[in-house]
Structures are given as structure tokens and as C-alpha cells.
């Protein structure tokens, strides 16, 4: 029961999804769309499971006073604050209007977005320092890597962009495209092979150990 039913479900739904793609009937396409809706609805339950896990992990850290336990209060404050402002109750004049509420939008625009974009912008410093250490023209291949990166980077410099842009565009649109196509083909085949392994029950890692 514990292993056979999940394996049977994977086999049935896997083949069904594959078959529905190739059946050019309106009914089949409707079932396909419905099943995609199902997946997104189930995804919310999975998200709820993740939220529950986040709450229990942080409560556990506070309870046992683990390292940096004080910051768990901040996480829980942010979590519950956002959830409360994401609720909808109290009529039209209430401040709790779900996704449309003023506070919910401002939490997103003025707390989430600044942190998110600043975190990614920090990578500019780390990537530059990594490049300084790694980019040494020790061999022909390393030199090609270095030259490719430099040409693409100086494409954005306003003083020289006029001269470097055609070369950089050519690199991005031609050799870059060629290698990426080779990689995508490999990825495409890899996904098909893995998908088949999952549907046929050869790959069972998703079921865990017990």
C-alpha cells in the first residue's frame, strides 16, 4: 500500500499527461488544462506545509535558545505580519483587503523588493572579486573566457559602447547561441530520460526511505 499506490499513481498520471498532449481533441485539452489547475491548487497546500515547517523550526529555535534564536522572532513577525495584512475582512473600508490592501502592497514594494534587489546587487561585489582571482589568462581557453567576458562587459560602457556593441552583440547572438543550443538539447534529452525513469518507476527517490 505505502509504495505500490504512489507508484501506480505516478504511472497512471504520468502517461495520462503525456497522452493528453498528443490527443488533438477539445475534451482532452480541457482535461489537460484542468490537471494543470489541480497542480497549482495542490501547490498551495505544499506551500502551507512549508510555512508550517518554517514556524515550527523557528519556534524550536526560540524554545531551545539555539544560536541566533532572537532573529527567529523577526522571521515570525514578518511572516505573521504579512499573513494578517494578506487577509480580507471587515468590509470595504477595512485595512485588510487581501492582496489589494495598502499595507500588503507596501510590505512587498518597500520591504521585500529593497531587500531582494540589494541582496542580488551585493553579488556584483562578490562576482567581481571572484573574477579578479579566477580570471588569469593562464591558457588559451582561459584567455577566450576572459576576452569574451570583457567584450560583453564593456558593451555597456557609454564611452566605448559604440565600438564594442557590434562585437558583443555578435558574441551573444552567434557563438553564445550555438553553445547554448547544444546545452539545451542535452538538457531536453536529460529531462525526457529522467521523466521516463520516474514514470516507469525506475527512479523512486521522491518517495523517501521509509
Amino acid at each position: 500500500m505505502k509504495r505500490q499506490i504512489p507508484l501506480a499513481l505516478v504511472f497512471i498520471f504520468g502517461w495520462l499527461m503525456l497522452a493528453l498532449y498528443f490527443i488533438p481533441l477539445e475534451g482532452a485539452q480541457k482535461v489537460n488544462e484542468n490537471m494543470l489547475d489541480w497542480t497549482s491548487i495542490i501547490g498551495i497546500f505544499a506551500l502551507a506545509l512549508g510555512i508550517w515547517s518554517l514556524i515550527t523550526v523557528n519556534l524550536d529555535r526560540i524554545k531551545h535558545k539555539k544560536r541566533d534564536w532572537q532573529y527567529s522572532f523577526i522571521t515570525l513577525f514578518g511572516l505573521f505580519g504579512m499573513i494578517i495584512f494578506g487577509l480580507k475582512f471587515g468590509g470595504e473600508n477595512s485595512m485588510f483587503q487581501g492582496q489589494e490592501s495598502y499595507m500588503f502592497r507596501h510590505f512587498f514594494n518597500d520591504i521585500l523588493i529593497p531587500i531582494y534587489s540589494t541582496m542580488f546587487s551585493l553579488l556584483a561585489f562578490f562576482i567581481a572579486s571572484a573574477a579578479y582571482r579566477a580570471f588569469r589568462a593562464r591558457s588559451a581557453l582561459a584567455s577566450i573566457l576572459l576576452i569574451g567576458a570583457i567584450i560583453v562587459m564593456i558593451r555597456f560602457f557609454p564611452f566605448v559602447a559604440e565600438y564594442t556593441r557590434p562585437v558583443a552583440d555578435w558574441i551573444l547572438n552567434v557563438p553564445n547561441l550555438a553553445a547554448k543550443r547544444a546545452i539545451w538539447m542535452g538538457v531536453g534529452l536529460g529531462i525526457v530520460a529522467t521523466g521516463l525513469k520516474v514514470i516507469l518507476g525506475i527512479e523512486r527517490a521522491y518517495m523517501g526511505r521509509d
Partner: peptide
Amino acid sequence: HLYVGVSAA
């Protein structure tokens, strides 16, 4: 930590 909580919610 604030980011983790707010983005999850």
C-alpha cells in the same frame, strides 16, 4: 530573517 518571513507569507 525579516526577508525570509515576509517573502514566505
